[in-house]
Design a protein around this nucleic acid. Structure first.
Lengths: 249, 249
DNA sequence: CGGTAGCTTGAAGCCCATCAAGAGGAGTGG
DNA sequence: CCACTCCTCTTGATGGGCTTCAAGCTACCG
């Protein structure tokens, strides 16, 4: 296991930050940003590295700058359910609570923009632009969690896999709507096992269903992780959602 | 189906409101409360009555004053998953969005304290006490949703039922921790079918598992809805959670 | 080359869904 | 009061989808 991810970074400015306009800081203006920059620092993590164990104290909150991290819960006997998938611009941690409730793990190389907890909590209180953006993002996460609950509770294994691929495609398109015609290329950011933990399945079932979709031409695989989608509408149909993907405006 | 639930209420004051200290308004002080009172009105709904259909415009947000309401998502073929269970003091609706993404249904007699959308959104912007409380509540809901995801994705039918009963017991204890010794009496606020929609099961499985727990003395039933818990620790054990119930500080 | 991590594939079995029938209780009206 | 209906819930029988257990495959790295 690699050591702690304290990054030996030089100075990095918010001006050139890739998530400047989507992260928790996106509504902030000049002096607010300067105040944030004073309490921020970067940390990097390697794939598989644990960012925080459930139950640990965590003395910072953070935005994901690049890479993918997951939040997981675990039952005593080891059964694991992923409950959050953090992509660039997503926020990690909860102001007002210093103990992490879930295991946070880097699933790819991850770079975090971290804010020390105490000053960040003060700023949440004092800077409406910050707390309002955090409220928006938390509500978006709640919507996503509820979509996810529908998947976990009611979809078949095949639908779960198709839904997952659709979710990744949409999030990698990042903002702009996914074109319904034309090829779409995506990179799965999770292992089969992590996908199983995301979807409430076993890794064997994940493998079987992915290969079933491949055999039927719904997806094409190059290597284990790279996926080509020849017909996104077909994928959505397999996912069991509405034609438009069931996304909530 | 009964008509719309516009309540012919007389004046009702926040001073005597049962959810005054837990709802979205709980941090508000004198003049803030007066401003809220100007835009509030009450509506009541009968069991089974639809509060809002998914896709509808909703021109208010609301706090649940009494009773229980549910939020549900539905796939095209009719499969239904409950994604929210709203008990007294819970908040309904999302500032900044006027279309409801889920079906909202009263599962018991429900009384809502409603705020007209537009002025409420202005107040969210202008009154930090309001937006900060809403942020807290939204984060609590997100935590609950994630606990729920673990249940949906990884627990057995038996564990789901035990977990559900434990959740209801805790929420009816409302704040104060559930005593681990002594009898606990609860009232199930849902039909078997609604429980099935909550838990990602069929109503037959719900019925079978409840009666299995009864046969084994984990719960006692009087009528269909009233439950006595002779040993709460035993119930938690059946739920598969940690000894303390897996609640996140 | 061996070792390991990630993935695929096969075989067997169990948990839960599905289909079906009936019991219990509340409300209605004769 | 009883017959009737409707709704909720219970119980039984059957089967399928997914898990579990097991083995082998592929790529990568020492």
């Amino acid at each position: 296991m690699p050591g702690p991810g304290r990054a030996p970074t030089g100075v990095e400015s918010c001006d050139t930050c890739p998530i400047r306009h989507r992260a928790v800081c996106s509504h902030c203006v000049d002096d607010e940003l300067i105040a944030l920059e004073k309490i921020k620092f970067y940390r990097s993590f390697e794939p598989g590295q644990v960012i925080a164990w459930g139950g640990d104290r965590m003395d910072f909150v953070a935005s994901v700058v690049s890479g993918v991290a997951s939040l997981s819960q675990r039952l005593e006997d080891g059964r694991t359910q992923m409950v959050g998938l953090l992509l660039p611009s997503d926020f990690m941690g909860r102001p007002g609570r210093d103990v992490v409730p879930y295991d946070a793990v880097a699933t790819t190389k991850v770079k975090l923009c971290c804010f020390r907890r105490a000053p960040f909590e003060d700023m949440i209180r004092d800077i409406p632009h910050l707390s309002q953006r955090l409220l928006e993002m938390t509500m978006d996460e709640l919507d996503a969690a509820r979509e996810w609950m529908l998947l976990l509770g009611r979809k078949t294994a095949r639908e779960k896999i198709a839904s997952f691929i659709a979710i990744i495609a949409r999030r990698q398109a990042s903002g702009s709507p996914v074109p319904m015609n034309g090829q779409i290329e995506i990179e799965l950011p999770l292992t089969r096992e992590a996908m199983a933990d995301y979807l409430g399945l076993t890794l064997e079932t994940v493998s079987r269903q992915i290969n079933a979709l491949k055999r039927e031409g719904v997806v094409e695989l190059s290597g284990k992780r790279h996926v080509t989608l020849p017909d996104f509408a077909r994928l959505l149909q397999e996912a069991g959602d509405d034609a438009d993907g069931g996304w909530i405006g």
